[in-house]
């Protein structure tokens, strides 16, 4: 139980995927205009990353390692992720239209979200077991959700502020993200 809690805490907050590892920045900066879209995106990311970490972990342990073709991991993983996203989209559309309506538009964008491939590669590189891979995948995705929701909330508030001309648009968003990164770096001081 302690390991589960620690893994979730580490992956979601201490090693936050966006703010300390710089993975998944495109959606972090791009889909954070409103809380609603940010929530949709983080839902889709949690769904896909958890599934893909499970799948890539199984593939690595039972296909790549026995066949001794570890150098194929990048190619195999990106193809599996691309196929998985398509599959998830089709299954959701057919069987859970409600969820599809909420996450549908964000799913195709996830294929090139480097957080997905990044999590899968980190999992196999640090030799995680299947359960650990799924857990840390889930934690990482939750961390992404936390970060993007906070940024979206801040950006919604910022719309009513007078931003200096030079900082309007992307610069102020980047500066906000920088301040958030300072705040999150405080988590690395946690002791157990």
């Amino acid at each position: 139980m302690k390991t589960v809690f620690l893994t979730l805490l580490t992956t979601a907050l201490i090693n936050n995927v966006v703010l300390s590892q710089f993975l998944g920045l495109c959606p972090f900066l791009g889909v954070s205009k409103t809380v609603k879209t940010a929530a949709g995106m983080s839902g889709a990311v949690v769904f896909v990353i958890t599934l893909s970490s499970a799948l890539t972990s199984v593939l690595y342990d039972f296909v790549l390692v026995p066949l001794d073709v570890l150098y194929m991991e990048t190619i195999v993983f990106i193809l599996v992720i691309a196929a998985l996203v398509q599959l998830v989209e089709m299954v959701l559309k057919k069987s859970i239209p409600g969820l599809y309506g909420a996450l549908g538009v964000y799913l195709p964008l996830i294929t090139t979200n480097c957080a997905v491939l990044g999590v899968s590669l980190t999992n196999v590189q640090s030799g995680h077991s299947f359960g650990m891979s799924v857990l840390s995948g889930f934690g990482t995705a939750v961390g992404f959700g936390v970060a993007i929701l906070i940024l979206a909330g801040l950006r919604e508030k910022m719309q009513h502020n007078e931003v200096p001309h030079a900082f309007q648009g992307m610069p102020i968003v980047l500066a906000t993200a920088g301040l958030m990164a300072i705040a999150f770096s405080g988590f690395s001081g946690l002791q157990f």
Binding site: L19, S20, F22, H165, A166, F167, Q168, G169, M170, P171, I172, V173, L174, A175, A177, G178, L179, A181, I182, S185
Partner: peptide, 16 residues
């Protein structure tokens, strides 16, 4: 990590 965001923010602000 935060420095990366700040440097890019300043560069983008200069471009603006």
């Amino acid at each position: 990590a935060p420095g990366a965001f700040f440097v890019l923010a300043i560069l983008a602000a200069l471009q603006n």
